[in-house]
Amino acid sequence: MVNIDEKIARLRSAAETGEPDAARELGRLLSLTVTDPAEPGDGEPEFPEERWLRAAVAARPDDVEALTLLAGRLAAQVSHWENYWANNPDGMAADGKDESTIEQLQTEVRDLHARILAAGPPAPAGPGLDRLAELLDTRDTESVVTAPYSFYALEDEGGGGSMVYTLTFIATDPDEIRWACDQWLTLSEGGMGELSFSTYVDGAETSRVDLDEHRDGASVSWDSVPVPELTGTLLPAGLPVSGARYSTVAYYGVALAGG
């Protein structure tokens, strides 16, 4: 099993010297956390990956992987702030953000999407980029684009009544999704509520595990949790997915929804 914390430490050291590949990979891993493990906050999404992905794109403007990651994570921010604005505009204003924040992010994601297409993305990214374009209203949205990728999904659902929140982690590496779960449970002191783990193959949910049945205090006993190997086309890092439980939108990485 890969030690993700040690990997992040190595990548951070290299990224701080200006190494673009390290910055891109560090950003990808940090997209699976709500806060940087080196600077833990209060559990609210802080998008710690953005700094490093911007550095990677600045160093290599035609790096399709970095462009895709940055576009996807900024698009995830759009979804986050739209939800925040709809449910708590006063709280968003207190954070120094408003509708113009969303508009600026949308404009930047559209620009990044155009740059990705101009740079020539790999074929497997096609459906996900089409889905991203659809979400950005750059194409006809009457028929939803299906992006039949394979991935793991971890969900923590909490709240009650009309206030239900779901924190979703999307990844394609078993060690990384386990690490993301452990990081979140440590940061949140046990999570928000009901914790589940799903496997998707070609866009369809093939297994679902109630992780509350595998808890050891505030952590998960992963040795008792089946984690099937993914087959099919893996979700390219940064792109959105569509599936039985994700008919609206979920992006590679972590996202909070609800209200």
Rank of each mutant, 00 (worst) to 15 (best):
E25L: 12
R51D: 04
A14T: 02
A237N: 12
T17Y: 05
T146P: 01
A66Y: 02
G72F: 08
E157I: 13
A58D: 13
A171H: 10
S79D: 15
G253L: 06
A255P: 00
E134R: 06
L67H: 06
D111S: 15
D212V: 03
A14I: 00
A250V: 04
N83C: 05
A22S: 14
L195N: 09
I8P: 02
A125Y: 09
A66I: 01
A125N: 10
D21A: 14
A55Y: 01
T168L: 06
D212C: 05
V57F: 04
L235M: 09
S207M: 11
A66R: 04
T233N: 02
G91C: 10
L256M: 13
R60L: 10
E46A: 15
L30V: 03
G238V: 03
A76Y: 00
P121A: 15
R73W: 06
T186Q: 14
Q106P: 00
D98N: 14
T146Q: 15
G232L: 01
I177Q: 01
Y246M: 10
R10Y: 05
V241G: 03
H113K: 06
S196M: 06
I4W: 01
L11R: 08
A218I: 11
L117H: 09
F197N: 01
P121S: 11
P122Y: 08
E157F: 01
T101L: 09
L32A: 11
A56V: 07
D140H: 04
V78H: 05
L112H: 03
E176H: 11
P20I: 04
W81N: 03
G193C: 11
T206K: 03
P89N: 09
E65P: 02
D182L: 02
R10C: 08
L132F: 07
V109H: 05
W81I: 05
N83R: 12
